[in-house]
Amino acid sequence: MIPLVHAEQAVLGAIFLEPGQLDRLSPWLRPEHFSRPAHGAVYATMLQLKADDHPATATKAGAPVPLAWVTDTLREASTRTRGLTASYLHSLVSACPRPEHAPVYGRMVLEGAIHRSVAEHAARLHQAALADGQHGAAEETVHHAQVLSDVLADLAHRWGTVPRPAQPPATYAPQAERPQPVGEQALADEELLLGCLSSRPDQLPAVVRWLQPGDFADPSNRQIYRALGALHHRGEPIDQLTVLWETQRRGALADGTLDPERVLRICDPLTGGAAEHFGEQIVQASLVRTAAVAARQVRALADRDELAPGQLISYALHTLGPLDDVRRRLRLAHGDEPGPRRSVSRPGAPPPADRIDAARARSRLADTTTPWVPTPAASRPAFADRHNHRSPS
């Protein structure tokens, strides 16, 4: 029998022996925190009897407990669940080492409930992300991501800790996962967006506010978007050739990530469309992929029994950080959240001159050689004078 079941039996046995322990448990321990339905039903019945002012709940510590406390609990709890017997309730009493330790046993029950609740909600988030990924949606993923965040905040409150993200140590770091397969529609949306931005660079300022290179599933498309962003940041012209040149300067052609033909095909000037629409689709797909990865990582943390509840909550919040960032940027893309202030006053306006100069300066190669400057003709001797001069004899 696992220690958690022992703890549940012990806390119920403590309440049977000293009903007054409910005053110390009821503010924070709930029936749903018990892993076994029968135990939750017994505890819920005890809370109800206490609310109904059952005489046994007024029994002082050390005083005899009326037998009605057990019989009434059995009768009422049997209406909530099946299989309860008087002998099992008496076994709960014998399972309690020390009744006065009931709050400690209760915290063991709550600790198990925290691990179990985090694992369950992480599994639901993962299932929602897989379903949304197949249907090209994100509503269920967004919903379950918010539910998981709310659950972590509530559990932190019940445990008495501050819900503060903390990076887990290397021993708990998630293992590298294989990239998830990406649908053809998602890849098509990425290429259509890049084509729109190449043919209509004036759409870039509105998109770069919430679309990041990491949102692209395809590494090649990610490099092209980085090249577009760099050209825009430096205030340089954007077309097929300038994008191709920028990808070369960034090493994407040399390492095989891209080939010139693909860059020229994607940046076809005949491509048109609304960049914001395709950008929203890309961020939405990125959110679903990020949620699937984060949910698996949180589930793995919840399965580590050695983690204290405060640690589990903090590590889980840190793991959800990238997902929260994508959720924020998706709201920004939908116009549901104001974005950060930018120096560009209107869509399509060029970047400020000082920023352009600084960006161009950073993009120039450092020249460590002394530049050659031709000497003016008037200040240098004639060739014949320098080479045919003879001393007087």
Rank of each mutant, 00 (worst) to 15 (best):
Q167G: 13
A188K: 13
S198V: 06
L192Y: 10
P165M: 04
W159K: 07
Q167I: 13
L187K: 07
A166P: 15
W159T: 09
P169Y: 03
L155P: 02
V182A: 07
E184C: 11
L192G: 09
L194S: 03
H157Y: 10
H157T: 13
A176W: 07
A186N: 03
R178N: 12
V151Y: 04
P179F: 00
Q185W: 12
T171E: 15
S199M: 08
G160D: 06
T161Q: 05
V162E: 12
L194A: 00
L152W: 02
C196E: 03
E184P: 12
A166R: 15
L193C: 02
E184L: 13
Q175H: 15
R200K: 12
E190N: 06
V151L: 06
P165R: 09
Q167R: 15
D154M: 11
L192K: 12
Q180H: 09
E191L: 10
V162Y: 14
P179V: 00
P163F: 01
A153E: 03
L193S: 03
Q180I: 12
Q185K: 09
Y172S: 11
W159H: 09
A173W: 06
Q180P: 09
L155N: 03
L193K: 04
A173D: 02
G183R: 04
R164Y: 15
S199P: 08
P163V: 04
R158P: 07
L194N: 03
L155M: 00
D189M: 03
A156P: 05
A153W: 08
A176P: 10
L187N: 01
S199I: 08
E191D: 10
E191H: 10
S199N: 04
A170T: 13
L192V: 12
R200L: 12
R178A: 14
A156G: 05
L155I: 02
D150Q: 04
E177G: 13
T171Y: 14
G183L: 01
C196A: 10
V151D: 04
P179H: 01
Y172V: 09
D150K: 09
C196L: 05
E177P: 11
D150A: 11
L194Q: 02
S198I: 04
P165E: 03
E190Y: 04
G183Q: 01
L197H: 06
R158W: 04
H157P: 01
R164D: 14
A173R: 05
A186G: 02
L197C: 01
A170Y: 09
P169N: 00
P169R: 10
C196H: 02
T171M: 13
L197K: 08
Q185D: 08
R164V: 15
P163T: 02
G195E: 02
G183P: 03
P181R: 05
A176D: 07
A186S: 08
V162L: 14
Y172D: 13
A166K: 14
A188V: 11
A166M: 15
D154E: 11
P179M: 06
L194H: 04
A166T: 14
A188F: 11
R164T: 15
R158C: 08
E191N: 08
Y172C: 11
C196N: 07
G160M: 05
G160C: 04
T161H: 01
V151W: 00
R164C: 12
V162R: 14
L194R: 06
L194F: 00
A170R: 10
Q175T: 15
L194G: 02
W159V: 08
Q175P: 12
Y172W: 10
V162F: 15
L192C: 11
V151F: 05
